[in-house]
Design a protein around this nucleic acid. Structure first.
Length: 351
DNA sequence: AAGACGGGGTG
DNA sequence: CACCCAGTCTT
């Protein structure tokens, strides 16, 4: 039996019911693919439902404010995806009459659409015979063919793409691609794959050689860095506070947070963050400063650990950038800030 | 070629 | 704690 045939047969019997599998409309497929980049389906699904409800068409998404798009994206991570999504929506709506490009080559030119997503949209929406290679496909192929080339090396990326292209069922690239991924997600799982019931077990080289645990091979990445954040949670006498939008290239670009003083080392016990920086933010005025959490809140990202202290700051005035405390919830914020707001119920302090 | 970029789930 | 997830972009 042919590899692709086994995969597709398995898929037709075992695939999950998912909203984006009921359509081949490129807007919906595109939205789902961007959301699912580096994201589990269970995590992305509720976001997909909210987005398609809030923005039924690419025009609705294009017309929305960046703030609203980021707010709906809040908690999903990799926020550049949301910014690129919005930018591409505006481009498609305004310059392409709302019609997505219909080829792998043209799709890949859009912001936020790389090799994987272009292949996914082209195959699912337009039946173009281009193979997708995502984390699932790497695992399935590395195991079945016993390939030790690191999947995140240049050589590996080329090798696996070429192999997937050879295996691709050109008659039904959509099913083949989705089958490869679904098979990796449900059957050929990273840990404890279901080899006993696997329809490909007879030909699986990793299984024969007892190398399931070792494959695929992946180069290890840099270790996590530590950062020390001090947030100034300001209350003015008019129940206003301060939020700042993050800009630049770092984490959380575009999201809002309380005025931040970052230090190289943790602020030592009993000490305060830099008075100069507080004055920069609030101007010279009478204020009181109180540490909210003695133990730092540790927020863990894949590449950095952030040790956070929140400081209550009572000030007379906050200037014209001040926003009513009750409006804070409308701003897109990192999960670190959202958790703080949730736990402290900020508005109850503003009475 | 190597990093940066989130957050949540799993063993 | 280490690894993974329907990857992409920048340097």
């Amino acid at each position: 039996m042919v590899f692709s045939k086994v995969l597709i047969d398995w898929y037709l019997k075992n695939k999950r019911e998912l909203p984006w599998r009921k359509t081949s409309d490129p807007y919906h497929i595109w939205l789902s693919e961007i959301m699912l980049q580096q994201t589990r389906i269970e995590q992305g699904l509720p976001y997909y439902m909210h987005f398609t409800s809030a923005f039924p068409s690419v025009f609705d998404l294009a017309e929305a404010s960046q703030e609203k798009v980021l707010k709906l994206w809040q908690g999903l991570g990799y926020y550049s995806r949301a910014r690129n999504l919005h930018e591409t929506a505006k481009y498609v709506a305004e310059d392409l009459n709302g019609i997505f490009p219909d080829s792998y080559k043209e799709l890949k030119k859009l912001k936020g659409i790389g090799d994987y997503t272009a292949a996914a949209i082209a195959s699912i929406c337009y039946n173009e015979p281009v193979a997708v290679v995502d984390g699932n496909v790497y695992r399935v192929l590395a195991r079945f063919f016993d390939i030790e080339t690191p999947i995140n090396s240049s050589a590996g990326i080329k090798e696996f793409k070429a192999l997937a292209s050879e295996l691709l069922d050109e008659k039904d690239p959509s099913s083949f691609n989705q089958a490869s991924m679904e098979f990796g997600a449900l059957q050929c799982k990273p840990r404890n794959p279901l080899c006993e019931t696997c329809p490909l077990s007879l030909g699986c080289l990793a299984l024969q050689k007892n190398k399931i645990q070792e494959l695929p091979v992946k180069l290890k990445k840099a270790k996590v860095k530590k950062r020390y954040f001090n947030y100034l949670v300001v209350f003015s006498e008019e129940n206003k506070t301060l939020l700042q939008q993050r800009t630049g290239k770092g984490i959380w670009n575009g999201l809002y947070e309380f005025p931040l003083i970052e230090t190289e080392e943790p602020v030592s016990e009993g000490a305060f963050p830099s008075v100069e920086k507080i004055n920069e933010i609030l101007g010279e005025q009478e204020l009181s400063l109180e540490l909210h959490n003695k133990k730092p809140v540790v927020h863990k990202l894949s590449h950095q650990h952030i040790y956070t202290h929140f400081w209550w700051v009572k000030a007379e005035k906050v200037g014209k950038e001040g926003i009513p405390v009750k409006n804070v919830k409308d701003y897109p914020v990192p999960v670190l800030i959202a958790n703080f707001l949730e736990e402290t119920a900020l508005e109850t302090y503003s009475l």
